[in-house]
């Protein structure tokens, strides 16, 4: 059977374009990075209320993304939410023990993420440690309730 080179070339280019497109969707659109798993370390933080925080949410420090939320579970002992964070390994031993974690909202209606703020303690957090000082998510109903009860008591 006679093979048409231009046709083979066309199909080859077509498939190559498809694979490159998928790569584009992976890297440029969904922001995948080929990070090696060992490049991270774990911290835990307990929050009284996490609002609508979800796994894979960003963890930021001064607005810079430094890690991700890997798991959220209920702490059976305290009945609050235990959030597992995975942070860049470069930060291991750089965060002071009194670092605070807060659940913040991007914009008025945006997604929720975890923001870290470094304190002044000379001792540093290491893999598997727990962040003690946390700040829960703002829940709109609670805010309104507080506001109303303040109005009434005034």
């Amino acid at each position: 059977m006679k093979r048409s080179k231009t046709m083979e070339l066309g199909v080859g280019l077509f498939m190559l374009a498809g694979i490159l497109g998928l790569l584009f969707l992976g890297l440029r659109v969904s922001g995948l990075t080929f990070s090696v798993p060992s490049d991270t370390f774990r911290l835990e933080a307990n929050f009284a209320n996490i609002g609508s925080l979800k796994p894979r949410a960003r963890v930021t420090m001064a607005g810079v993304t430094v890690g991700r939320v890997t798991a959220i579970e209920l702490d059976r002992e305290w009945y609050d939410a235990r959030v597992i964070l995975e942070l860049d390994a470069e930060l291991e031993g750089q965060l002071s023990r009194d670092t605070t974690a807060a659940i913040l909202t991007a914009g008025l209606l945006g997604e929720q993420y975890v923001g870290l703020t470094v304190g002044g303690d000379p001792e540093m957090l290491s893999d598997g440690d727990i962040i003690r000082d946390t700040q829960s998510a703002l829940v709109l109903e609670e805010l309104i309730q507080q506001f109303v009860s303040n109005m009434v008591s005034d």
């Binding site: 998928l22 969707l25 992976g26 440029r28 659109v29 969904s30 922001g31 995948l32 894979r56 960003r58 997604e111």
Partner: peptide, 19 residues
């Protein structure tokens, strides 16, 4: 434009399910 996209698009959830 690109940043918001990267923050919200998940490769498995969105690209994968579309595929």
């Amino acid at each position: 434009y690109w940043g918001n996209m990267q923050a919200s698009v998940d490769f498995i959830e969105d690209v994968g399910n579309g595929m």
